[in-house]
Design a protein around this nucleic acid. Structure first.
Length: 153
DNA sequence: GCCAACGTTGGC
DNA sequence: GCCAACGTTGGC
């Protein structure tokens, strides 16, 4: 099993939106960055744990956890001309973009802000700190444990 | 097959 | 809204 950190803009899709899904899971779609896609397509698997991170907001922070309940499949939005995620270069034969399904697992008692993560000597090796602008990234077990502990869950 | 240009991301 | 880092693209 692999552990991950997924970033989402809360205005677009928040942890609370995931928790409120009537079906019990949400589609993690709209990934249009190649590095993130490669992780999603090749490495993300059912049962993997996900730290849910809110980005591009006032206080960027890890806010809870989720679990992968369906591995990569072609993101339907790329085929829909009405969607803002439409990609004219993608075809059903050769999909360019992928998505997975996630289920909500927990909401932290205290969100763990990026600023705190950067200051924490145990967490300076996180991809989140070392490489910005990557919306899907692997997380080490000890990093996961530290952050979940800081979150109070 | 090199490499400059491009699109996406996201903290500041 | 700036701009830096990344993978991909495409002209040559």
């Amino acid at each position: 099993m692999t552990l991950w950190l997924f970033k989402s803009e809360p205005d677009e899709y928040s942890l609370q939106d995931l928790a409120a899904e009537a079906s019990g899971f949400g589609r993690w779609d709209g990934i249009r960055n190649y590095q993130a896609r490669n992780f999603l397509r090749d490495r993300v698997a059912i049962g993997d744990g996900v730290l849910f991170y809110h980005s591009a907001c006032k206080i960027p922070a890890v806010v809870g956890t989720a679990e992968v309940v369906r591995a990569a499949y072609a993101d339907p939005a790329q085929f829909d001309p009405e969607s803002k995620y439409f990609d004219p270069k993608a075809s059903a034969d050769k999909p360019r973009w992928y998505c997975v399904d996630l289920a909500w697992r927990s909401e932290f008692a205290r969100p763990v802000p990026l600023a705190d993560i950067k200051k924490n000597p145990q967490l300076t090796e996180m991809v989140l700190v070392k490489q910005g602008r990557l919306s899907i990234q692997p997380v080490r077990q000890e990093e996961w444990d530290s952050i979940v502990k800081l979150g109070g869950k």
